[in-house]
């Protein structure tokens, strides 16, 4: 692919293929219930997005080249359309590379003029099987923005807790660099791919970004998606256990 621009941050190569400008970047990293990843894949397909940025690191990521429609691609990619970007990865990030990647991503986004990062993830709920319509939760780097977004999606309150993983570092680094980051969480299965939770996340994104993305196909193809993503879920489960995801299931030190 012809390179338009290249930047290396923390050893991660960000390779842009054209001059597409992204204002809002949705992050679909593999995490609890693969909610972010399933959401991202559905957005890319429904909005017919094209890949505009490839991300790689020859030592921190497995040595892979992803082949799509006969063309080699980098393992982490940003797809875009109309100033909206969506980040996906074909390989789960190893726990040792999560801090450097998360920091690099925020620094790159800031330097390229991205205004808002939206992290989409599942909030592992052991009682998910009994929940027909999963709840949405919201936290963010800017409390005024969280208030504005809350008015649109009416999330359930989350006053205390511990966020673990790449989204935690992305949130902290966004605060440090004064970049708007909202973290959209949906009740989900912990270690089972959860297209139902992803559908709820997409409905919230529809309201936040004034999109009109249909989730019918996502729910109709639930079995196919789960089968296709089951191995990524297994790899992600290993990573979650090793990056201390269990901290999310214990109370904070100080409480009110």
């Amino acid at each position: 692919m012809p390179r338009f621009y290249e930047e290396i941050v923390n050893g991660f190569l960000f390779q842009e293929y054209d001059d597409t400008k992204i204002d809002t970047l949705i992050l679909g990293l593999p995490d609890v219930g693969l909610v972010g990843a399933i959401t991202a894949i559905h957005l890319i397909k429904e909005l017919n997005m094209k890949d505009v940025v490839g991300i790689d690191n020859y030592t921190a990521l497995p040595p892979v080249a992803v082949i799509m429609e006969g063309k080699p691609k980098l393992p982490i990619r940003i797809y875009a359309r109309d100033n909206l970007g969506v980040l996906v990865t074909d390989v789960p990030l190893a726990p040792s590379s999560i801090p450097l990647f998360s920091e690099a991503l925020v620094r790159y986004a800031k330097s390229r003029g991205v205004k808002t990062l939206i992290s989409v993830t599942g909030l592992g709920n052991p009682g998910r099987i009994e929940i027909e319509k999963p709840n949405v939760y919201l936290i963010g780097s800017d409390q005024d923005n969280v208030k504005q977004v809350s008015e649109k999606i009416n999330p359930k309150n989350i006053n205390q807790g511990i966020l673990v993983g790449p989204y935690a570092i992305i949130l902290k680094e966004s605060i440090r660099l004064n970049l708007n980051n909202i973290v959209l969480m949906v009740d989900s299965f912990i270690d089972i791919p959860d297209p139902g939770a992803a559908a709820v996340a997409i409905e919230s994104l529809n309201k936040i970004l004034e999109l009109d993305i249909d989730v019918t196909k996502l729910l109709e193809e639930e079995d196919k998606i789960k089968l296709r993503l089951k191995e990524l879920m297994k790899e992600t489960k290993n990573v979650m256990a090793r990056m201390g995801k269990t901290y999310e299931y214990r109370p904070t030190l100080i409480y009110t």
Binding site: A94, I190, I192, K230, E231, N238, R242
Partner: peptide, 30 residues
């Protein structure tokens, strides 16, 4: 940590190849 990462991947690799060669895949289980 990298050594641990590699060991975990090695386990996944052997498990997967063993299953696939038998024509099966694991159920999704929690």
């Amino acid at each position: 940590e990298r050594v641990y990462d590699e060991e975990a991947l090695e386990d996944v690799f052997y498990e997967r190849t063993r299953q696939y060669s038998r024509g099966s895949i694991e159920p999704i289980i929690s």
